[in-house]
Amino acid sequence: MKYIYALTLLLISSAAVASEAVVQERLGQYRTQGAGDFDAARGQTLWQQEHMQVKLGKQVNCASCHSANLQQAGKHMRTGKRIEPMAPSVNPDRLNDAEKIEKWFTRNCKWTWGRECTAQEKGDILTFLQSK
């Protein structure tokens, strides 16, 4: 039994390290694109900021699909599909793949905000997510 705990702990901690390394690499990349220091609080504000989704005719923010509590699963507001929690502390699959991070930033910034996010905004949001 003890081994199972130890193994689980090891898996969780190694996953946290994995996302940490990927996030740091991304933040470094954003700095080369002109971003300054990153701030989790600013990331949280961006996460909650509402925008008019023209095609839907509704105000939306990131939490519309990802849920306000990042440690809980969200639900796609149109298809109803379950979206696994964003917080790396409860979902080790999050933030450990740079290509996946960028793919979803492109799609979701354009859909939610109607434009691409800047390097600064992406860095702030990643810092916020990583802290959860």
Binding site: K55, R78, K103, T106, R107, N108, K110, W111
Partner: peptide
């Protein structure tokens, strides 16, 4: 894919 039934589903 940038307007995939109202969603953005762009891929590389």
């Amino acid at each position: 894919l940038d307007d995939h039934f109202g969603e953005n589903a762009e891929l590389n």
